[in-house]
Design a protein around this nucleic acid. Structure first.
Lengths: 217, 217
DNA sequence: TCCTCTATGTAATCATCGATTACATTTCGC
DNA sequence: GCGAAATGTAATCGATGATTACATAGAGGA
């Protein structure tokens, strides 16, 4: 145990070169540190995030009442990025081809989940926040879900689907991509890492199989 | 104290009223305690399991080198039960109807996962053991997977499938049920708990949709 | 029957973590 | 300027996984 310095140094440090007592935007830095921790595969601890922000172990609790609150904020950030990526991908898909959009959606979904497994875990697990609560995460997620519902409704309107039970199709579709993403996350695709693109091509094949299954060819 | 007692204290306590120093089958009891902990939704800690076994906090480490080793044993037990349930369900399905067997398999899978969410989490997550390692869990899981491959091969042999890419169908099927189970686990089915059977009926519908999608109608 | 060896449980201890509290310092509104 | 609010620090608590030294039970050999 280091002995406390008997007297306060009282160093008048230069303003611009030394971290000031107040951090500036500790909240933001903590979220980013936690995101990075997660991306590195390490388990996210408040203390480690504080360490990376070069701040005392108790400091984060000024911005987040609990670890879960920090993780919820992290999830919020990850979910925002996820949604943004989805929307970019859909920006390229013509509105006149709902099944094509559906496909593009699934691809973007899985691509992001494959490339950001830790972030996908955080937004999907429900361990860090309740999916039913009215958080930003939930709203972003609901928006994404609404996207798929619209695509399916458009497809049905154009007579492209074999079944009229859109709810069922939608849940199955969600379960499919969610399951694929989580299988990857949970280590159910053992040796696929060898060639990087293989898993994404498999994802593509699975999506195509699903669309072929629901389409009135 | 250096000398061992030359003669035993010979307390000879009543066998049934006092817990003996040695537990009997602590390993088994710890696994069961951990399973129960998980089923209760609590997070599984070694100490709590020890507490339930009325044993000192360090005792479990005589049987499991680490918490993860305990969880791996728990996963082994859960996976065994899962496989057993699947095989019982398939025992009733005629071998002549591979798609019917496929359906029965999916139903049994999801029923078990819905009713034992914590146990399903433990065997699926890969947080407590590597899915690639040669544990009993992995072998049981591989056996279950092999079951589905046989069913699909049979179906293909009878010309029941639209596609010949069995691998793709198999992965999609796994992703579908896995995803449905995990969505339930992860809280993506908000208010469905009201009527107990609803989620299982939805699961049934999703499975049927999938089979209709792959069947040469 | 005794003795010893080994398996197994206990006690004490450590480091880490989430969390809380008292205190210090900076920042900002008046 | 000044005082209050915001924000960081220091110290501390209880729980946990883990390790170590020690104690005891129980089985097998002499």
């Amino acid at each position: 145990m280091p002995v406390r310095q008997p007297s306060k140094p009282r160093v008048r440090r230069e303003r611009s070169e030394v971290r000031p007592y107040h951090h500036g935007d500790l909240r933001r830095v903590l979220i980013d540190a936690a995101l990075q921790l997660a991306a590195e595969g390490a388990e996210v601890s408040v203390r480690e995030a504080a360490r990376r922000a070069a701040v005392s172990p108790g400091a984060p609790f000024r911005h987040f009442p609990s670890r879960d609150a920090l993780m919820a904020a992290v999830a919020e950030e990850a979910q925002r990025r996820f949604r943004a990526e989805i929307e970019v991908a859909l920006g390229d898909a013509p509105a006149t081809d709902p099944l094509g959009r559906f496909r593009a959606f699934g691809l973007a979904y899985l691509r992001w989940a494959m490339r950001n497994p830790a972030h996908f875990e955080i937004i999907s697990t429900g361990r860090y926040f309740a999916h039913g609560s009215s958080t930003e995460v939930t709203r972003d997620n609901a928006e994404v879900i609404a996207l798929t519902e619209r695509m399916l409704a458009d497809a049905a309107a154009q007579g492209l689907l074999r079944s009229t039970d859109l709810k069922r199709i939608q849940i199955a579709g969600r379960a499919l991509v969610y399951g694929f993403a989580r299988m990857n996350l949970d280590g159910h695709f053992p040796r696929w890492g060898v060639e990087e693109g293989e898993i994404e091509r498999t994802a593509e094949g699975v999506i195509d199989l699903f669309i072929a299954g629901i389409a009135r060819f």
